[in-house]
Design a protein around this nucleic acid. Sequence first.
DNA 1: GTCGTTGATGAATGATATTTATCAATGACG
DNA 2: CGTCATTGATAAATATCATTCATCAACGAC
Lengths: 252, 252
Amino acid sequence: MTIPGRRQAVRLPREQRVAEIMRAARAVFVEKGYEEALLSDIAERADVVEGSIYRYFENKRDLLVKVIEDWYEAMLSDYDQQLSGIRGTRNRLRYMVWRHLETVHEEPALCHLMFQIIRSGADYSATAVHELNRKYTHRTLDIVREGIDAGELRGDIPLRLVRDMMYGCVEHRTWAYLRGEGDFDSNHVADAIVDLVLGGLAKAPANQPRDQTIALRLEQAVARLERLDAESAPAVRSSSPSKKRRYLPGRV
Amino acid sequence: MTIPGRRQAVRLPREQRVAEIMRAARAVFVEKGYEEALLSDIAERADVVEGSIYRYFENKRDLLVKVIEDWYEAMLSDYDQQLSGIRGTRNRLRYMVWRHLETVHEEPALCHLMFQIIRSGADYSATAVHELNRKYTHRTLDIVREGIDAGELRGDIPLRLVRDMMYGCVEHRTWAYLRGEGDFDSNHVADAIVDLVLGGLAKAPANQPRDQTIALRLEQAVARLERLDAESAPAVRSSSPSKKRRYLPGRV
DNA sequence: GTCGTTGATGAATGATATTTATCAATGACG
DNA sequence: CGTCATTGATAAATATCATTCATCAACGAC
């Protein structure tokens, strides 16, 4: 006999319930950020009771980690898919950066969670996200290596430094964007970054002027970027921050 | 008449009490990280009662922000102090990077808090830390600008990109370090970064080989770095993470 | 048809940040 | 000198959530 007032328990197979909860969690996390997201919100949206979540996830953080992992994995496999159809060191490198920037535009909240919560956690190194990330940056290094082998790039620069610079730069921009300090154009930024890196890396025969196409592209990109910088430069400090789009949920 | 059992209230002038609390807070935050640091811990160490903290600080987060601000301000003023005694674009640029890296070594926990809690907060832009940081990176751009004016550096690169690359790279290394993924040598890394940036930036007369000294320094730095990379490369995944030094307090 | 296994529940529990109601020293002012 | 507003400080109450617990019911194998 069902106790009156006791909610009708809908039984689902494990996988399906896990999927439901993760879908709900992702929505709530995106909407409210980590701290503001309540397990009760998530439970409600997943149409379960709070306690049920603990049958499938260790704790709130674990839930987030799983959500991010899921997203990240799908994303990276798509990266590979696309990349397989792109030829040429420059194009491939550019695609990596461009796609990264696009992702920030498409999923700012998830990116923010990824940076703030996942990647700065003490257990990050043990996370699948870490492994995925490693794989991803390896992909980038592979491209550079191919370029070196093909004789297109200088071989005397530590690969790690190149990678750190590229993604470091990307992330600086990303943070500024996530903070609502100004938008960016993925195409322009990607061009500028790749151009600068290649400009420093490109094998320049000692007594020859730099590759014409590179020099040209560089000029154009730089001109565009300077304009962009001028626009997005904060005219007056603390003018009207409310007008800026923000993607950081939470504290007001 | 004093109610028996009621603690003897030591009255201090505002400034002094604030200083006490901040000293205590800094210690506890450093020791335990943000979430694990309890207001009761801080109160105890500051020899006040929890509620008293709220007389001087909005909330826990505000307390941390003030602590970081304090530290950051002192640090930057010292930067300026030192920098005033250094001549030459390369040396000055190198000092900025080097000092940044050294700071990470000296105060890993505060750096971590700065990155994770402060800089990713929704209110970061309104923070004094943001302003300080802006001032700091401006200093860097000034140096580059001086170099351009002096004819030492190419003038056709967007300054922001240069800055983002330098600090982006620094931060990538920093995070890896904070996560316990391997140490770094501030001197080597600073050399490598500055060399790479200048290698891409340095005005290379079209039909002349690159500046000899730069080329030489580059080679040396690269050699050192390759060695370093080889050493700090994770031999076997998930070998014994317990052996690595970690500077992330918190969750076990 | 019984019984172990697993999905699911609703109500505790616990840990902490934050508030509130009070209290006492201090010092300015009549 | 006293009174009284101001400010430093307190102890206890509150509120908010994450997490755990004691039960319960459907399902399926045997």
